[in-house]
């Protein structure tokens, strides 16, 4: 049996052990991405084999947390897919402005770049002081980074371009302070976002939402888990509320699809019916 087949066996055993010991179930994650992430974590660890890692992980919570951080780390960008943000300004905001106050859930926010982007957009479109955003992730290490709101300065040039082509109305540099090689987001933005731990696989929703954003998170899940998460969103989204998923994701063929219509073609912005 070659090393790679052994690794696959050890991987299945490890995931089963983690589920039994810690209640984190990765069986409904897409295999290719999960394996790549665990492989990446493993080659950067000191363990000789994945079985060695397992012995330690099952006994030592810190060792488990290290693995968990490695395999649940999603990346986030500011104003990724500028046409999406433009469509948000044009199709979602006019509806949100009809409410005195709106609640927004950013599910799987990772290090928070997209949550900050959305907050910037809402402020520019006249929603300042009229919204609360809950930004959640399974991974506490990335949540702390999101709370800190400090990002590499070298990314800001790209983010500025994204911001502008996404319909940005001000100068992007108004929103952060440059310090050495970092950009520190404006505290006023941070205060509008509540960062909290939440596991889409097992946790329930928390209250009624007007807008839910979950972009490029479901692509890591198998169909059964996608269905579960979409049901969770549907459960807490108010009638007339909006659901935004990634540009290469779709509600087509999903159980909740009949209650949703896509309001911006190809931008994957869906509105829940009142019926």
């Amino acid at each position: 049996m070659d090393q790679d087949e052994l690794f696959d066996i050890e991987l299945r055993l490890l995931l089963s052990g983690i589920n039994q010991a810690y209640g984190y179930d990765f069986t409904d994650y897409s295999e290719a991405s999960l394996k790549r992430r665990i492989m990446h974590w493993f080659v950067n660890s000191d363990y000789a084999t994945l079985s060695d890692a397992q012995a330690r992980i099952l006994r030592d919570r810190d060792a488990f947390e290290s693995l968990l951080r490695g395999i649940t780390v999603n990346v986030s960008e500011m104003f990724r897919d500028p046409p999406f943000f433009k469509a948000m300004r044009e199709t979602v905001i006019p509806h949100l402005l009809t409410y005195p106050f709106v609640k927004i859930w950013h599910a799987g926010c990772a290090t928070g770049e997209e949550a900050y982007s959305t907050a910037i957009l809402l402020n520019e479109e006249g929603m300042a002081g009229r919204f609360r955003m809950y930004a959640t992730d399974i991974n506490n290490a990335v949540l702390q980074k999101a709370r800190d709101g400090i990002f590499p300065l070298k990314e800001m040039q790209r983010y500025t371009r994204n911001y502008q082509s996404g319909g940005g109305k001000k100068s992007f540099s108004d929103y952060y302070t440059a310090r050495y090689d970092h950009a520190i987001m404006m505290p006023a933005l941070r205060e509008q976002i509540v960062f909290a731990s939440h596991n889409l696989v097992v946790d329930s929703d928390f209250g009624e939402m007007h807008l839910i954003l979950c972009r490029n998170v479901l692509i890591y899940f198998k169909p059964t888990l996608k269905e579960r998460v979409l049901f969770l969103f549907d459960n807490c989204l108010l009638p007339g509320g909006f659901l935004c998923i990634g540009l290469k994701e779709s509600l087509e063929g999903r159980k909740i699809a009949s209650r949703y219509s896509e309001v911006a073609p190809k931008m994957r912005i869906y509105r829940k019916s009142y019926g």
Partner: peptide
């Protein structure tokens, strides 16, 4: 035999 996509780094 299915394609999956990711936004990993």
């Amino acid at each position: 035999g299915k394609i999956t996509l990711s936004v990993d780094p």
